[in-house]
Simulated scan of single mutants.
Amino acid sequence: MAENKKVSTVSFFNSRLTSVISIALVLFLLGLILLMGLLSNKLSVYVKENIAFSILLKDNQKEADIKRMQKSLDALPFIKSTEYISKEQAAKELEEELGENPETFLGFNPLQASMEVKLHSEYANPDSLKLIEKQIRTYTSVTDLLYRKDMMEMVHNNMKRVGIILLTLAVVLMCISFVLISNTIRLLIYSKRFLIHTMKLVGATPGFIRRPFVRYNVISGIFASILAILMLTGALYYLQNELKGFIQILDVQSLLIVYAAVLGLGILLSVVATIFAVNKYLRMGVDKLYYI
C-alpha cells in the first residue's frame, strides 16, 4: 500500500514537472519575442531621434535673432532639440574631418551658419517631414534645409517591416503556444477522465468539476512563468556580457512589462487550455471514454 502511494507520488511529481518545463519553454519563446519587439521599438526611437537635419541660415544674422528663432523652434511640438553651429564652428569641424582649414586655400570661410535639428521619433517619417519642412521655410532667416530624405525613408520602412514581422511571429507563436500548452494539460487531465465522468454522474456542476483542475494548472502556470522569467534573465545576462551596453537599451520598466506579460500569459493560457480540456471530457459519453 505504501509502495503504491510512493509510486503514485513520484508519478504525480514527474507529470507536474514535465508540464511545468514544457509550459516554461513555450513562455520563454514568447518572452523572447516580446523582448525583441521592445528592443526594435527602442532602437527605432533611438535611430529616428538621432537623425538630424540642418537649417542653413542667412549670413550676417544678429545673435538676438538667431536665439529668438532657436527658442521658437524649441517650442514646436515635433522638435526634440536644436543646436546652433556658427560659421567658425562649422569651419573648425570641417578642418577636423579634412585635416585642413578651408580658409587657408580659399581666403574666406565658404560655410554657412546652421541650426542642427533633431525630431521626436513619431515625427521622423517622410510624410511628417514634408509638413515640417514647409513650416520651417516660413522663417525669414532660413535659406535652405539639408537632410537625408533617402535615409529617413529607409529607416522608416525597415522599422515598419521589422514591426510587421515581429507581430506576425508573436501571433503565430501565440497560437503554437496555446496548442502545445493545451496538449500538455490535456494529457494531464486524460488520466482523470473517468473521475470527471463519475463527478458528473453524482450531480456535480461543470463549474465545480473544472475548479480543482483550473486551480492545479494555474499553480503550474505560475511556476512555469517564474522558470521562464529566470531563463529570460539568464539570456539577458549572457547578451550583456557578449554585447556591452546592450542592457542599457532596455529600461527596468520595459523588463517588468515583459516579465508581467509572461506571468499573465502563463496563467491565462493555462486557464483557457484547462477549460477547453475539461469541457471536452464533460461532453463525452462513458462509451467514448474507453476509446480515446
Score class of each variant (00 low, 15 high):
I275Q: 09
L167D: 00
N50V: 01
Y290R: 06
A113V: 05
Y123K: 12
A235I: 03
R211K: 12
N14D: 01
A124H: 14
E49F: 12
L236G: 02
K92S: 11
L250S: 05
L230T: 02
S182Y: 04
Q89W: 00
I226N: 05
T205H: 08
S225A: 15
F246W: 10
I33Q: 10
L39Q: 03
Y291M: 07
A2W: 10
L129Y: 11
R186P: 01
K288I: 00
A52F: 12
V47C: 04
N183F: 08
K134T: 14
S86H: 08
I222D: 05
M1L: 09
F208D: 10
F223H: 04
V142T: 09
L17H: 05
I33K: 02
Y84I: 06
V278W: 08
S128V: 03
I292D: 11
K118Y: 14
I226G: 06
I165W: 00
K192H: 09
F178T: 07
Q135D: 15
L256M: 13
H120R: 11
S225T: 06
F53Q: 15
A228L: 06
L38N: 14
Y259C: 10
M36N: 11
S81Y: 05
L145W: 07
N183D: 01
S22D: 03
F28Q: 03
F223C: 10
E93D: 15
V258C: 05
K118W: 09
I275H: 10
R215D: 02
E100V: 08
Y237I: 00
N50Q: 14
M154R: 14
Y291A: 06
K192Y: 06
S8K: 13
E242C: 00
D287Y: 14
Y123N: 06
Y237F: 03
F223L: 08
I181R: 03
R161E: 00
I267D: 13
V179D: 00
S11I: 12
V47W: 12
K288D: 14
T198L: 07
V258M: 07
L289F: 08
M231F: 15
F223Q: 06
I226T: 13
I132F: 09
P212A: 09
L173Y: 00
N157C: 00
L35D: 00
I267E: 10
M36S: 11
Y147N: 04
L43P: 01
Y46F: 11
L98W: 07
S72E: 14
K48N: 07
L73A: 03
F194S: 01
L187T: 04
Y216L: 08
L17A: 15
I267L: 13
L180T: 07
V271Y: 09
V214R: 07
I181A: 05
Y291Q: 10
V218H: 05
K280F: 11
S86G: 02
S225M: 07
L17N: 07
E116C: 03
I185T: 02
I85E: 02
K80L: 05
H156F: 13
R193C: 02
I85H: 05
V26N: 06
N157L: 01
V7L: 15
I136S: 05
L43W: 11
A224R: 04
T184D: 01
V272L: 14
